[in-house]
C-alpha cells in the first residue's frame, strides 16, 4: 500500500498541491534535499500531463498520485484514466477521434521528466496511463 495516496479533480490549480505533498513525503522518506526540487518538478509535470489528458478526453475521474516509501527508495506513481490505444500505434491513427492535448507541450513535459529522473517508466493501456518514478533515499547513499 502507498504511504500516501492523493486523488484530485483534474484541474490545473490542484497540481501545486500535489507537488507540495509529494515533496513533503519525499523529504520525510529521506530523499536528499538537493533532489527534492527534481521530485517537485517531475511530479508536477506528470500531474500536469494527466490533468491535460483528463480535460481533453472529457474524463471526470480524479487524477491519482501514489507516494510510496520503500526500504531504499521513494517512488511516485501518477495515473490517469484516459484509455490509450494499447500498442496499436499512435492514438487516432486509425481515424478514431482520440483527442490529444497540444502534442508539443505533452512531449515537453515527458522530456523534462526523462531528463530529470533516472528511474522512470511510462506505460499506458486501455484503462489509462501511469508514470512511475523513483529516487534513492538517504539509507541507500553514503553520506560524506
Amino acid at each position: 500500500m502507498a504511504t500516501v495516496e492523493l486523488r484530485f479533480s483534474a484541474l490545473p490549480e490542484h497540481v501545486r498541491t500535489a507537488r507540495l505533498v509529494a515533496a513533503a513525503v519525499a523529504r520525510r522518506a529521506g530523499v536528499d534535499e538537493a533532489v527534492l526540487d527534481e521530485v517537485r518538478l517531475a511530479v508536477g509535470e506528470a500531474c500536469t500531463r494527466a490533468v491535460g489528458l483528463h480535460q481533453s478526453g472529457g474524463v471526470t475521474a480524479p487524477v491519482r498520485v501514489l507516494l510510496t516509501e520503500e526500504e531504499k527508495q521513494f517512488s511516485i506513481e501518477v495515473g490517469d484514466e484516459v484509455p490509450h490505444a494499447a500498442s496499436h500505434g499512435v492514438p487516432g491513427e486509425d481515424g478514431a477521434a482520440v483527442e490529444e492535448p497540444e502534442p508539443e507541450e505533452d512531449e515537453m513535459g515527458l522530456a523534462v521528466i526523462s531528463g530529470l529522473v533516472d528511474d522512470v517508466e511510462v506505460s499506458a493501456d486501455e484503462h489509462g496511463g501511469v508514470i512511475r518514478m523513483s529516487w534513492p533515499t538517504a539509507s541507500a547513499t553514503v553520506l560524506p
Binding site: 517537485r40 508536477g44 500536469t48 497540444e102 508539443e104 507541450e105 515537453m108 513535459g109 522530456a111 523534462v112
Partner: peptide
Amino acid sequence: DFLDSTGLG
C-alpha cells in the same frame, strides 16, 4: 521559484 514545461511553452 518554480518553472515547468508549461511555463517553457
